[in-house]
Amino acid sequence: MNSITVAIFDVDNEGVLAGPQNKSARVIHAILKAETNIETIIVTGKKLRQSRLDGINVFMIPGGGVMLYQQWALGVRGRKIVRDFVRQGGGYFGICSGAFLATNARFGWLALVDVKLHDMKHQNRGGGLISVKLNAAHAEEVFSSQWVLKDTLPMLYWQGPLMVDQTGGKLTESKRKAGFGIIKEVASFSSVIAPEDSENERIRFPEYFSDEHMSGHAACIQTTYGKGRVFVSSPHLELPAENRGMIPEIIRWTAQVETLCEAL
């Protein structure tokens, strides 16, 4: 099998992995480094603009970041490079803030995924462990049976997007020409969170942890953009630790690893 090279995006100008605060990126980096045939590099906005992601199979924005700062660090040219990279066959994997940035819900985001985001006004909810329900029909395209057969999984939700597919499995001609693919819901939220420190409403909105605002919305989505594959996850797939084996499988799917194998 050919090696897959994953570029993990970092906003630190020195290229130190996501700074000392971003546990999410550090855990993911460790998971991928332990995998055979997966190589990782760290790219800043500056390095991305210089390299144009040459030699990269998958571009990843992990969770734990501030999406507006990540957007700024990418810059207009960097965002175009990422879109062109995916359109031409590269993979994109975004978790939490990386899932937000993948959508076309706000001007200046990457616009790889055509979804509506529910209740952005109260997005800063806080978080905790939540159950997600897998959609086997779509999950089995990405994951091995050890995951698909579990039906539900615990995952860490921390202020990620609540995604809503409005396409009904269809694409208009204009959306198709723009590069968007059919949205396939891999998992949806199946429970609500018992918020931590819910009395601190300066940073949390505990009244929006209801079934109306959480359950049923898409938690993980797979789709295409141009010739490339896109996987976005609102919850942090790297936590709890029992889920970490999902991440290399997502990388291989977004890298279209079966295409790489055919070249051998």
Rank of each mutant, 00 (worst) to 15 (best):
D119V: 03
G108E: 01
G94Y: 05
K116Q: 15
G126K: 04
V132H: 05
N135D: 12
G127W: 07
R106L: 12
V132I: 15
S97D: 09
F93H: 09
N124F: 04
E141M: 06
G98T: 13
V113H: 09
W109S: 09
A102R: 07
A137T: 15
K133P: 01
D119G: 04
C96S: 01
D119Y: 02
V113W: 06
D114H: 09
F107Q: 15
N104F: 05
Y92F: 05
A136S: 13
S131L: 09
I95R: 02
I130G: 01
G90W: 00
R106M: 15
R106D: 12
G94C: 09
L134E: 06
K133R: 11
K121N: 14
H118I: 10
A139Y: 05
F100C: 01
A139V: 04
G98S: 15
G94Q: 15
S97R: 09
G128P: 02
L101C: 05
L112A: 10
M120F: 04
L112N: 11
N124E: 06
A102T: 08
R125T: 09
L110Q: 01
L110K: 01
V115R: 03
H118P: 03
V115C: 11
A102S: 11
L101S: 06
G91N: 07
S97L: 11
W109T: 12
A99S: 07
L110E: 08
R106C: 10
L110P: 04
G126M: 02
Y92I: 01
L117Y: 10
A136E: 15
W109E: 13
S97A: 14
G91P: 00
A136M: 13
E141T: 05
G94L: 13
R125Q: 12
A139W: 04
A136I: 13
G108T: 01
A105G: 02
C96H: 08
G91C: 04
F107C: 07
N135C: 09
L117P: 05
F107Y: 11
V132P: 06
W109C: 07
F100V: 01
E141C: 08
Q123M: 11
V113L: 07
T103V: 10
H118Q: 09
N135Q: 11
L110F: 01
V113Q: 07
K133T: 07
H122P: 03
T103G: 10
L129W: 06
A99K: 02
H138N: 14
T103N: 10
A102E: 02
S97F: 03
A137D: 14
G127A: 06
A137H: 14
V113Y: 07
G108N: 05
A111F: 00
V132W: 03
G91D: 00
M120D: 13
A139T: 03
F107M: 13
L134S: 12
V113M: 14
H118Y: 11
H138Y: 14
M120R: 13
F93Q: 04
V132Q: 06
L110N: 06
H118T: 03
G94T: 12
Y92H: 00
K121Y: 12
N124I: 02
